[in-house]
């Protein structure tokens, strides 16, 4: 029987639609990432760690919530790996666990001001909450 970790790895790869095997570890994705300084694990590490099945550290990392979905890594990867999709699939695996929602309707209020566009709020919920 496949281990839980192997099942999770396969699920992340399948639902992300990214091709982690094609990565040649050039680091270009991480070099272009606007959140690089804030991340513990960088986009190229997400790709490598998912490929090798080292997923647990990613699941518990704050790095999941630093990705801005700017798609710079997707556009600039010379191998078409699409790292942002890997980050997203791992994040979904994390927040789909019971009690792991990052943002709650009560918790969001402290972030709001009069000018903030609805778009920011719905986007954050879409990203951080299931």
């Amino acid at each position: 029987m496949k281990s839980k970790n192997e099942l999770l790895r396969e699920n992340i790869i399948r639902t992300s639609g990214a091709d982690v095997k094609k990565c040649m570890k050039c680091g270009k994705c991480s070099g272009t990432c606007p959140s690089y300084d804030e991340m513990e694990y960088h986009p190229h590490q997400f790709v490598y760690m998912v490929e090798t099945g080292d997923i647990e550290p990613l699941l518990n990392s704050e790095s999941l919530y630093k990705c801005l979905t700017c798609f710079a890594c997707v556009d600039r990867c010379p191998r078409g790996v699409q790292p942002a999709k890997v980050v997203e699939a791992v994040r979904l695996a994390a927040i789909r666990q019971q009690g792991k929602n990052r943002l709650t309707p009560d918790g969001v209020e402290k972030y709001l001001d009069d000018e903030i566009p609805q778009q920011a709020i719905v986007s954050a919920f879409r990203k951080y909450t299931k």
Binding site: P34, E38, K66, L68, I116, A120, A124, K127
Partner: peptide
């Protein structure tokens, strides 16, 4: 054509400010 920080405005204002 670089990112402003987007929805991180809610949780990560320092990151958005830098961008």
């Amino acid at each position: 054509n670089e990112c402003c920080g987007g929805y991180a405005a809610l949780e990560e204002p320092a990151l958005v400010k830098k961008r």
